[in-house]
């Protein structure tokens, strides 16, 4: 009940800043939406002061373990895959370039949800292997993301001055050492903001793996909604969970960027 008072207070402050016509419009919308939730809010489902509330919250938050595990594993694989796909694009020959183009265009054209379903339900039949929900999710997310990673790497590597290759050549470095010690360290520094974006994107897309039964954040929220029938409160908690994780990740990426800049 305190929360409702709090919300009303916020609303009144908010309204003071708005023209009156807008307030009426917002008030109307607020009435309509409140009408749909049978009069009173039910924050008790996630109230940490009660035993069931605590249990429900713990159930929701435990999904973080899978969401983060899924996203981080998938992004590590997709970065490696993306780099492997990007390198042929830098070749002067036509065949490697074509392989890169076909892979990128093909993978980019498949919706992530469709890929998840295909990998989980389709792949075991094709390859006659059993694949766990976790690894099906990781595989689908990684493949899907690798096309974008490949484009990011290609742009990053192409932005490095030709003189860096020439200098490497003139001190007798081979292709592998040139890439490893000269080109990639500089390219990765430049594409770090884009890689950070991809990680945030991946954290959000991992919610789609809920459809094949992965017990990550979104799946747990869905399950709790079914038993408690409090969608507004539970999904609000879900929104906050993603928000907190992603804000922390963004801050981490910015910190890393600053650290690399000072070097």
């Amino acid at each position: 009940m305190q929360l409702i008072q709090f919300m009303q207070f916020i609303m009144s402050k908010f309204c003071a800043l708005m023209p009156s016509s807008l307030i009426r419009l917002l008030g109307l919308a607020g009435l309509v939406s409140l009408g749909g939730c049978s009069g009173n809010w039910g924050w008790y489902v996630v109230n940490p002061a009660t035993e069931t509330g605590r249990q429900n919250l713990a159930f929701l938050i435990d999904g973080l373990y899978y969401t983060i595990g899924l996203s981080v594993t998938a992004i590590c694989i997709s970065i490696c895959l993306g780099l492997l796909v990007a390198l042929p694009a830098l070749s002067n020959r036509r065949a490697p370039k074509a392989i890169n183009r076909i892979y990128v265009e093909l993978v980019r054209a498949i919706p992530i949800l469709v890929l998840i379903l295909w990998v989980y339900y389709g792949l075991p039949q094709v390859a006659s292997l059993s694949i766990s929900v976790f690894w099906a999710g990781v595989l689908a997310l990684a493949i899907s993301d690798s096309a974008f990673q490949a484009e990011i790497f290609r742009a990053g590597i192409q932005s490095i001055d030709r003189g860096q290759y020439e200098a490497s050549h003139s001190i007798s470095l081979n292709y592998r050492d040139t890439m490893r010690y000269v080109i990639l360290p500089q390219a990765i520094k430049r594409i770090l903001p884009a890689l950070g974006n991809q990680l945030v994107y991946m954290l959000k897309m991992s919610s789609l793996v809920s459809v094949i039964g992965m017990q990550e954040l979104t799946r747990r929220a869905n399950e709790l909604v079914v038993t408690e029938y409090r969608p507004l409160e539970i999904y609000t908690v879900l929104v906050l969970e993603y928000l907190v994780v992603i804000l922390i990740v963004s801050a981490g990426v910015r910190w890393l960027e600053r650290r690399l800049e000072t070097n």
Partner: peptide, 11 residues
């Protein structure tokens, strides 16, 4: 070889 633009490795 020595280049006009030095081409040192900046990192």
């Amino acid at each position: 070889m020595v280049f006009q633009q030095f081409n040192l490795f900046p990192h």
